[in-house]
């Protein structure tokens, strides 16, 4: 029983990162009108930036800011590509955005495989990982890394939900999510808000990269694919674009994955995510929380 509780705690920490990833992915889907498959890949390359900065400067503060800035810059850099697709005449072609994002993902993987650390996985310093024990009761252990991850994730998720549901900027994002033509007619500055959206997604991605590096302590060129597939699965299971659904499903996946690792080899966790996805698609094709709306 104690082992299961310990695994659930691990799962909540991991799940909270999935929640942030899915929130960023859904935000890009709803407001940016793109399927940003490369989002987790940018998170992973930001982890590489963090690792590099730590190695170079040994200064955690520089690493933190550098990671966030690199993630924001990468997002701002890819924005014109998606803008070009979405501002073409005719209805927005979300499938094209998926292909472009997939291309970005492959390029980033190639860069990580060949140019960074000779393609070998990277390991973060032990002091960065915050692996010291914050609380220990028999087998139940909560590391400071897990605690940070959980606290920061809750704070960020809360801040994002306040931004979306309580601020004028959030209302504008939701208006764009509902109908971009009406939003344009309303006088909402779509281009400026789109750039801001990529900035916010970049900020979120940078924070996720920091949390991930503290929680798992390593990264490899293939980590992006591993996370991206899960994020896609969670987003589809919850219902593409369903922010609240993504929150619940992300957390559930984290917990289930941690429990599975206890009973089965870890490599089964991806299969499980996709089994869940297949099952949900069969019975609820639009996801469990089935409204494709930021409101739901």
């Amino acid at each position: 029983m104690k082992v299961i509780i310990a695994q659930i705690i691990n799962g909540i920490a991991l799940g909270s990162i999935y929640v942030l990833l899915v929130t960023g992915f859904n935000l890009m889907f709803l407001v940016g009108k793109i399927i940003h498959f490369a989002y987790p890949y940018i998170v992973v390359i930001s982890m590489y930036a963090c690792w590099g900065l730590l190695k170079l400067t040994n200064n955690p503060l520089i690493a933190v800011f550098g990671t966030i800035i690199s993630s924001i810059l990468l997002h701002i850099m890819v924005e014109p590509l998606f803008r070009h697709i979405n501002t073409r005449k005719g209805p927005i072609d979300i499938n094209s955005s998926f292909i472009v994002s997939l291309g970005i993902a492959l390029i980033l993987t190639e860069i990580m495989s060949h140019q960074l650390n000779y393609g070998f996985p990277i390991a973060f310093p032990l002091n960065w990982m915050s692996s010291s024990i914050f609380l220990e009761i028999n087998l139940i252990r909560i590391s400071t890394g897990q605690l940070y991850t959980l606290l920061v994730s809750i704070l960020i998720a809360l801040a994002l939900f306040i931004l979306i549901y309580q601020t004028q900027l959030g209302r504008a994002f939701r208006a764009i999510a509902e109908n971009i033509s009406k939003a344009r007619l309303q006088g909402i500055p779509i281009l400026r808000l789109n750039l801001l959206l990529y900035g916010i997604a970049g900020l979120l991605g940078g924070i996720i990269a920091l949390l991930f590096s503290m929680l798992i302590g390593s990264a490899s060129p293939w980590l992006g694919e591993y996370i991206a597939l899960k994020v896609l699965a969670v987003a589809i299971v919850a219902g593409l674009g369903n922010m609240k659904g993504g929150l619940i499903c992300g957390l559930v996946l984290g917990i289930v994955e941690s429990l599975i690792i206890h009973f089965l080899p870890g490599s089964w966790s991806n299969a499980l995510a996709f089994l869940m996805m297949l099952f949900v698609i069969l019975i609820r094709p639009r996801g469990i929380f089935n409204k494709n709306s930021i409101e739901s």
Binding site: Q168, R171, A175, K182, S293, E295
Partner: peptide, 14 residues
């Protein structure tokens, strides 16, 4: 041109 998923107040705020 109203946003159907937003409340009346949110529409006015926009």
């Amino acid at each position: 041109g109203i946003f159907r998923t937003l409340t009346v107040e949110e529409n006015l705020q926009l």
